[in-house]
Nucleic acid binder design. Structure first.
Lengths: 322, 322
DNA sequence: TTGTAAGCGTTATCAA
DNA sequence: TTGATAACGCTTACAA
């Protein structure tokens, strides 16, 4: 409709409403401190001019940008996509923008991103990769980012660094839940197929393994497929960490004409879409994403948040119809 | 290592190098116009102070941010994830940051994002959804964004709006290629399962349908599954637009104990990971993403680019072993 | 080749 | 409850 080719500034609004810039600024930032009368006049003027504050000027003055960085292991993978979606949605609810950084699972790249982030104009960063990233170089880069005033949130407890928030998830509960279901259905020798045993998540998953055989397979489709080829024949059920790994396992099993009950520790739309659909024992990415943003928001405005613990839930589907 | 808790400003550098701010600024922006001697002195000072220009101040002054917005239909879907990955990588190569906006396939949301984007501090935006978005309201919002100086790139020709760049893809070639392969292998009655017939891409796909029966199914897993249930029994092969749709089709077929050769018009890692792996006839998302950024970069620095046309390629896998 | 000085649009401090 | 005014850190005429 109306289209001012050049965008209106706070001064334009002030003039139109017959007040000072200060008042306009107040209407935007602390509406309570302004009389209802002027409030309305200013709001009308702003609306009429289609005014929106210039984010640079605001950032320059306040040191805050309303933008956070999301560092993700590999956005082409279903889980990370769902997570990014959740983060973006939750961030938007709080008026935060999200800058996307894909790490391609590389620690070196993570470090270089961390190094330049403080100058990119973001208020904070979310490190959403599950990879084991606790190298000295990365820890140092994170500490630096913190020192430069950036808020840091991770998806899992990662560094010894003070002052970074992380999502608390009962990861061990996922395999435990899955194995329980399998046992109840009569499985005798379940195997737990892990990406890694020693990463921040892997360590926790091992705790939920119980009697099950633990196999470390790497996080990729093909590594998981290889691991399944080497699986001894007496195993009669599988719990697998990620969807790509589970697909690799399925594919390897199909190749040798075998079929096993499978439960996956990752809940994404895709899980329900493959054939057979995967049963899952997992925390939905929406929850994790939402929690990350909640922690970030708290860090940003110095609020206290009570710790919240995320628990995996079981969803039964065809791959293991319990 | 070194960590100045507060970051150094241009003035700090100037003082340390014994020059004026102007000179420091010049060293950064037009190094040629400064004597080799001062150049070095300033650079040393900048290095010593670990100086990096404040992006707000710079943006406020110059109006440019080095950040582009990526608007994507649904980042939780494999194709969009791969595309985002490609865009992020290509953007980074050119020193551009990427802000992520997930549209959830909603036109209303697209419009609201477009409306506020001009004030979010981005230089341009890439609209990467394949949905039909040519409503009057959206077109108006896009025109507005253009008028406010934003560069606009779309994944497919979308609006009548002047001055927006778009990726040229021979979409019709994908079904054509697929149907050709199927015919060569003896398929008599192939069906082409489309998300929509009248959207910007759907229209093109129809052109490549040839003799095949065209079925409009909607873009989701379940809609595609429904469509397949209604498929008449004489059809003996399927060409499907997207992976989620193909999974829906597979699932519906499996449910009635049928199996058909399938070729999908979307090439993502997942295609190779499902069982049976999908043969595809498609332009890899990396190419599309790269091209989008190429167009964006050209728009941003006013360069001319020769139009480049993307062509689908065929990749044979288990779902149709040709 | 270098420096002076005037903004860019906003918010924060003070005073009215 | 409001307003004048001074920053924030940088770029860019215009001068020297």
């Amino acid at each position: 409709m109306s289209k001012p080719s050049e965008s209106a500034t706070i001064l334009d609004v002030a003039r139109r409403a017959g007040v000072s810039r200060t008042t306009v600024s107040r209407v935007l930032n602390e509406p309570d401190r302004v009389s209802p009368d002027t409030l309305k006049r200013v709001q009308d003027a702003a609306e009429a001019l289609n005014y929106a504050p210039n984010s640079f000027a605001r950032g320059l003055r306040s040191g805050r940008t309303g933008v956070i960085a999301l560092l993700v292991g590999d956005i082409s993978q279903p889980f990370h996509g769902s997570l990014a979606q959740a983060v973006a949605a939750a961030a938007e609810e709080r008026g935060l923008g999200v800058m996307l950084y894909d790490l391609g699972h590389s620690t070196a790249r993570l470090e270089s991103v961390l190094r330049k982030l403080p100058r990119q104009g973001v208020d904070g960063l979310i490190i959403a990769t599950a990879d084991d990233i606790s190298t000295a170089a990365v820890a140092d880069a994170v500490a630096d980012a913190r020192a430069q005033g950036l808020a840091v949130v991770t998806g899992v407890e990662q560094f010894g660094v003070e002052g970074i928030a992380f999502v608390r998830t009962e990861h061990a509960e996922a395999p435990r839940l899955a194995l329980e279901k399998l046992a109840a259905a009569g499985a005798q020798r379940p195997a737990l197929l892990l990406g890694d045993k020693h990463g921040p998540i892997g360590r926790q998953l091992v705790l939920g393994a119980g009697e099950a055989t633990v196999i470390e397979a790497g996080y990729s489709f093909s590594r998981a497929a290889d691991a399944v080829h080497a699986l001894s024949p007496e195993h009669d059920a599988l719990v697998v960490t990620t969807i790509p790994m589970a697909l690799g396992a399925m594919s390897a099993l199909a190749a040798i004409g075998r079929q096993l009950p499978i439960i996956v520790c990752e809940e994404v739309p895709l899980a329900a879409h493959v054939t057979p659909a995967f049963s899952t024992a997992a925390v939905p990415p929406e929850e994790t994403g939402r929690e990350m943003v909640r922690l970030m928001a708290a860090l940003l405005d110095g609020t206290q948040v009570e710790p919240r613990v995320l628990r995996p839930v079981y969803t039964g589907r065809e791959s293991f119809p319990s």
